[in-house]
Computed example of a mutant assay.
Amino acid sequence: MATTTKTSSSSPSWSKGWVSNLSNIASRLYFFLIILQIPLFRIPCRSGMCSTPIHVTSSQLIASEIFPVPVVKALLYPGAVVNGLVNNLTVPSWDNVLSIYNLTSVKEAPATTDLQRLEVLAGSYFSVAGAFIGLLKPGRMTMFGTLLVVWGLVKEGILGKPVNTDPTRAVYVYPTMLIAVICAFSSIKYDVKKVTRNAPARPTAKPLKSSVKSKLK
């Protein structure tokens, strides 16, 4: 009898720990997908063709001068190092980071390219910010940003808005996008104790008055 009570009491704590660890692992995996610039999609942007949320965000930050250039370089450099080691076995220099991503003349590029894809632009902002915030506290920002990006890609790829007649600038979604979506949803941290507390109590069956009277007789 004591063994049964111990097992049932430890089950909720084990479930809570498993859900908490899952959200933390998913948040870290999502962070590495973003900061290492694993290609998730391919879409036209102000710097040419962008394949990661950081690339989309950086092109807009450089063009609008919202953040200083060193901050944008710090966002791009980890991914540039990984891509340089994988492709050329070389580490790019800090000064050439903007040239690698074709961001040196992004201010002169027409802003209509990004304005036509506001969902992807806004989703990339939320994805990058959510990836960093998720390291401290997993939340819903990554999910919201990823859904915005997916909707923007679907709208252009399937619905054809905006219209694109150049096949070299066609929208493409990489299989890694599915991993990003799974990590974004899994990074949401659920409070198992709160869910259990708010669950409606099951009604207990009460004996009928007639049966009680018959027993007394």
Rank of each mutant, 00 (worst) to 15 (best):
residue 89 L to V: 08
residue 13 S to W: 13
residue 115 L to V: 09
residue 146 T to Q: 07
residue 83 N to M: 11
residue 36 L to N: 00
residue 92 P to W: 05
residue 186 S to M: 13
residue 193 K to N: 14
residue 53 P to G: 05
residue 174 Y to E: 07
residue 69 V to H: 06
residue 92 P to H: 04
residue 105 S to P: 06
residue 55 H to A: 10
residue 165 T to K: 12
residue 30 Y to S: 08
residue 83 N to W: 11
residue 216 L to W: 08
residue 151 W to P: 05
residue 155 K to M: 11
residue 160 G to I: 00
residue 25 I to H: 01
residue 36 L to C: 07
residue 206 K to C: 09
residue 104 T to A: 13
residue 136 L to P: 01
residue 216 L to E: 12
residue 182 I to M: 12
residue 127 S to L: 01
residue 167 P to L: 04
residue 102 N to E: 12
residue 57 T to D: 05
residue 67 F to W: 14
residue 163 V to A: 10
residue 169 R to H: 15
residue 146 T to P: 04
residue 12 P to S: 05
residue 36 L to V: 04
residue 44 P to A: 06
residue 29 L to A: 10
residue 30 Y to F: 15
residue 140 R to P: 13
residue 47 S to M: 08
residue 117 R to S: 05
residue 69 V to D: 08
residue 100 I to N: 03
residue 51 S to L: 08
residue 152 G to H: 00
residue 66 I to D: 07
residue 31 F to C: 00
residue 111 A to E: 11
residue 195 V to H: 10
residue 34 I to C: 04
residue 57 T to L: 15
residue 27 S to Y: 04
residue 104 T to L: 13
residue 128 V to W: 03
residue 112 T to N: 13
residue 137 K to M: 10
residue 4 T to Q: 15
residue 151 W to K: 12
residue 194 K to P: 00
residue 174 Y to F: 11
residue 93 S to K: 15
residue 71 V to D: 08
residue 125 Y to V: 14
residue 97 V to M: 00
residue 91 V to A: 03
residue 23 S to I: 05
residue 82 V to T: 03
residue 216 L to K: 09
residue 211 S to F: 10
residue 191 D to P: 05
residue 156 E to T: 01
residue 216 L to R: 09
residue 40 L to E: 00
residue 156 E to I: 02
residue 81 V to A: 06
residue 193 K to G: 09
residue 54 I to P: 02
